[in-house]
Simulated scan of single mutants.
Amino acid sequence: MERVRAYAKSPRFECVLARIDDEPVGLALGYALPENARWWAGLTTPVDPELIREDGTRTFGLTELMTHPDWQGHGIAHRLHDELLYKRPEQRASLTVRSDNRTARQAYDKWGWWQMGKIKPFPDSPHYDALILDLTRK
């Protein structure tokens, strides 16, 4: 909840909640990356500096996408993903996913995301795949 409160203060924060029979079963949220965002700190893959340039309007950071375990495999995450991202004004979206999370990686690959590098956002964190989705191809 602490992270969600911090994200909610960010520019162009948005959250989408899935409910079934009035019970929450999933959630997706994120925000527009600000100019000089810390988002790309910890990249361990060399990338073109233009790829990580942020101006406050270019990239939407997808920070959370989750479905209750009882409802996984029913397409809820995909619907949350699309609902959150479909009308975004940014050119692209970015997210990080654990490199060993094969299920999530397969879904993101299927939904059009591509890997731009590897990232270790904190010294004690695992490596993640940094992914990008072109939002201009809607």
Rank of each mutant, 00 (worst) to 15 (best):
W114K: 14
D124T: 13
R53G: 02
R58C: 03
N36I: 00
H68I: 04
D82K: 10
W113S: 09
K138S: 05
R12M: 11
P121D: 05
G30C: 08
I119S: 06
R5W: 10
L131A: 05
Y31M: 06
A6L: 14
G26C: 03
E90Q: 15
T44R: 11
Q72R: 15
N36H: 03
E90N: 02
A8P: 11
D21N: 15
R19L: 09
D22R: 10
M66H: 01
W39P: 03
R98W: 10
A6D: 07
Q106K: 15
S94R: 09
Q72W: 06
L95A: 10
S10P: 09
P123I: 00
T44V: 12
P89L: 08
L80K: 07
L51Y: 01
P123N: 04
D70I: 01
L51N: 02
F122M: 12
G73H: 08
T136A: 02
P126L: 04
R58Q: 04
D109I: 08
A107Y: 04
A41L: 12
S94F: 05
H81R: 06
S94M: 09
E2S: 09
A93P: 12
R79G: 00
Y108I: 08
D70V: 03
Y31W: 07
R88P: 10
R58Y: 06
A130C: 15
R53D: 15
M1V: 03
P46G: 12
L43M: 15
T44Q: 12
L43R: 12
W113N: 05
D48L: 05
K110L: 07
H68Q: 09
K9G: 13
Y86Q: 13
V16E: 04
P34L: 06
W39R: 04
P11G: 01
Y108M: 04
Q106F: 13
R98Q: 12
V4I: 15
T96R: 11
G56A: 07
K110G: 02
V97W: 00
I119T: 07
L27V: 05
W111M: 13
M66A: 11
P89M: 10
T136Y: 06
E14K: 14
Q106D: 15
I52D: 09
Q106S: 14
Q91Y: 12
M1T: 09
Y128M: 08
N36T: 04
L135I: 11
S99M: 00
P11K: 11
V4K: 12
V4D: 07
R3Q: 02
A18V: 04
I76K: 02
K118G: 10
L80A: 03
R105A: 09
A6F: 11
G117Q: 08
P34N: 04
G30E: 01
E64M: 08
Y128T: 01
Q115R: 14
R102M: 02
L33G: 07
T67M: 07
